[in-house]
Design a protein around this nucleic acid. Structure first.
Lengths: 226, 226
DNA sequence: ATCGTATATGAAAAATCTGTGAAATATTGT
DNA sequence: ACAATATTTCACAGATTTTTCATATACGAT
């Protein structure tokens, strides 16, 4: 078994496309289903699905009922996609055995991170949730950054951005790419907002670590050890 | 199946010509359509189109609506062409299931690179992003050039130009050709600007590597190992 | 060798892009 | 609703890159 197979269930084609794209880029195999019934058919036919990403709102058979059906025969991990308005339903999902929740709209990072996390948890593959580059260390689980072991306070976006940099250290990242990966998919703002975040990151990380974020003129940024 | 077939849709004949030319040079088959409606007609008649390049602004049926229609029946990769003013519509396209998006004006390099990338992604082919010639090594991913393992700082254009040289090492390149491939298609300046870039490249690359860029009198340049 | 062109080069001008501080908006917590 | 934070936008100075230009130098043909 090489790539893990993920079943993505959503009635909206474009949402399936979005989710699929990000997962495929993260090296998963993706199978699509456009409603709960179809999902069940596929799921019980293909015995090799590692995880199910399931939208709540769907015609024919909604997300909740689909999980119930699946749970009658399988403990496959399930991640639910839900719109903000449905937030309250969360508890219902956990009772049903939902592993994670993702609220729309979400950033690719979040989606992939959750999927990775759930799969790691359930396939007892080891991973400490620590990434580093030079003197920068990121504890993803604790959502905490250290520079030379000294904890640094970062805002949410700053953290996400730095995490993206560290995970892609040595790789030149265009603003476009950063925007598409770190920001929600419905963000319509300026790419220059990245500059501002980079400025704050550099300043908060301090001289030495801050200088690791290189500007690539006319292109974007790159994180690299000095 | 030999060459992959690409459908290029744009109302401006000139733009279709540009895109077509570059794709043909990169060994693709190209079919043209001058508006969304025509594109749909062609697309659903010819079941063998590997990718669609689609302009956003078009009469009759615009790019967005065309994607929507296509997406009702097909998951064919779609690349959108858009003018700067529409920049942030990218995300709209993304939701609709657009695979990539290119802002006008673009360089042939970009166009071909994106097309290749998308097709590679959807056909699971691999590529390492390293090219070299003699002592010159280019790490495309990191956007970094090395000469004898020593990193060299190049500006954006210098990098693009050198990359083009290396990818076409041993081949005589006219200024015309260089301009058409490395510069945006709407560049109307002097071809002699290439001379200046070559000068800077030679100087930055140092004696040995710099001398690999040969002048072909009355014709252009060529990169070749000494 | 000499002439007509083509290229190399240094420097100036023009065009672009990035860094910043501060203001304007959103978001969150009380 | 209000205050505290976080995020995004804006405008402009300062950098850097790209292009143009003028002049020197090199090449190839006669």
């Amino acid at each position: 078994m090489d790539k893990l197979k993920i079943l993505v269930v959503d009635d909206e084609g474009r949402m399936r496309k979005i989710v699929k794209d990000f997962l495929v880029k993260s090296n998963y195999d993706v199978i699509e289903a456009s409603n709960g019934q179809e999902a069940l058919d596929i799921f019980f036919e293909d015995k090799n699905i590692a995880l199910v990403v399931l939208d709540v709102m769907m015609p024919v058979l909604d997300g909740w009922d689909t999980v119930k059906e699946i749970r009658k025969y399988s403990k496959v991990p399930v991640i639910m996609l839900t719109a903000r308005a449905e937030e309250r339903d969360e508890l219902m999902g956990f009772e049903l055995g939902v592993d994670e929740y993702i609220t729309k709209p979400f950033s690719p990072k979040i989606l992939v991170a959750r999927v990775d996390a759930v799969l790691r948890r359930t396939t007892n593959m080891e991973q400490n949730g620590l990434v580093e580059c030079g003197s920068i260390k990121i504890d993803k689980v604790a959502h905490q950054v250290y520079v030379k072991e000294v904890p640094i306070e970062l805002s949410y976006k700053e953290f996400e951005l730095l995490e993206y940099f560290v995970e892609n250290k040595g790789i030149a990242l265009s603003r476009e790419k950063i925007l598409n990966n770190v920001w929600d998919y419905d963000y319509f703002g300026e790419a220059r907002t990245i500059d501002t975040h980079v400025k704050k990151l550099r300043s908060k990380l301090g001289e030495e670590a801050g200088d690791m974020i290189k500007t690539i003129w006319g292109m974007g940024y790159k994180l690299e050890e000095n």
